[in-house]
Design a protein around this nucleic acid. Structure first.
Lengths: 213, 213
DNA sequence: GCCTGTGAAGCTATTCACAGCT
DNA sequence: AGCTGTGAATAGCTTCACAGGC
């Protein structure tokens, strides 16, 4: 199977969200330039991205909103893999919980992990918090494959390692360190300090428009 | 002045953090391959990045940790522009407050804004919360140039526009929508839903290693 | 006319590979 | 020997431009 870049996957995920909104507003068809305007991309890029997943629109009507959304859904295979672990139920962890609750119906945070005795066995936003020692057991029992890592930088590597050993194959890492994982595990880093420094740099040095993201 | 990509700026910011840690551990010199190993990059890329900012090491000793860090500091111009506004003091906003407090000494969140009367005039983590209506006044008074946007998607555009009108030139946007800003304003989007969907995709489709960020 | 799909071109980012230094 | 700095090569990404269709 052809390898598709993280950039394309990100944009597809974003297009899908826009298509959902458009569908909710009653829009049935959209041209590439319309979708591009919403996404902040070029029409050519939208067409390329749509081509990569093998959907094709009509010159007369553009893309059928529902069909394209369904094609992206199928491509991203949204049905499976929805159970997520949250490692670190501090300020950031709880914010992530409330952020993801309800937002993405295909995903649910099935378990939280923390070493703070004040958090263990609490239920926050419908998510039960377990001690770190139970990662292996709970991840296996709940069939968890994805994890959010929101622990302090100093323990992120240990926590990530333990999650991988328990069977997690995808990690969204909010700790400001690179973590090393076995082959076959995918890590994406959300490094907010780095992002802020980048914003500070370009705010001063006058690059306008949207950066990455 | 030569235009430098967001990727390079991000990596420089990351190298600097690693260099600080190395210096704290008493390391005086590092070779490109050592820094690369810590950063998860290639030695050639480290050398390129270092070259871009005009620092040069020695074949015998590699880079002088303190000097390189100072050169990156000077390049990113860390001294100015440190005052930040936080728009939206909900769960995410408060998590960002606690995340950035102390973390980056060159940055401080000087004011929060929210429309919830329960939050207005409260002080959270040393940050005073004002009503949205006072953005123009407070941003001007505090000399704020950067903003974190952590409001619901539906109002992100309005809030971003108001911030720009008040003089903000850099926005780190956590709302899952693209916001449109005047020329000369830089926006970086942190779209956690998109990131999670990307992780889910690559967790299944087996791309290993680190993605972007 | 204005659209899509797409080969080809153009551009950006990364890596190679080697001269020059210690 | 092993390193840096860097021109050249490669790989990857985006845009152009146009054939073909309505």
């Amino acid at each position: 199977m052809l390898m598709i870049s993280t950039k394309v996957i990100g944009r597809l995920s974003f297009y899908r969200r826009l298509l959902k909104e458009a569908a909710a507003d009653g829009t049935e068809n959209m041209f590439s330039h319309e979708l591009a305007a919403l996404a902040g991309a070029t029409p050519a890029q939208v067409r390329r991205d749509v081509m990569t997943i093998g959907y094709t629109g009509s010159p007369a009507r553009g893309y059928h909103v529902e069909e394209l959304r369904a094609t992206i859904d199928a491509f991203l295979d949204t049905s499976s893999c929805g159970r997520i672990a949250l490692a670190g139920v501090g300020n950031l962890g709880r914010a992530l919980l409330s952020y993801f609750v309800g937002k993405a119906p295909q995903f649910s945070i099935a378990a939280g992990f923390d070493n703070d005795p004040a958090k263990v066995n609490r239920v926050v936003h419908g998510c039960r918090c377990y001690p770190m020692g139970q990662v292996a057991e709970v991840v296996a029992r709940e069939g968890i494959r994805l994890a959010l890592v929101a622990v302090p930088a100093g323990v992120a590597q240990d926590v990530a390692g333990e999650l991988c050993r328990a069977g997690v194959t995808g990690i969204l890492n909010f700790a400001p360190v690179r973590v090393w994982v076995p082959d076959g595990v995918y890590v994406e880093n959300v490094d907010m300090s780095m992002s802020l420094e980048r914003v500070a740099y370009f705010a001063r040095n006058g690059a306008n428009g949207n950066g990455k993201g």
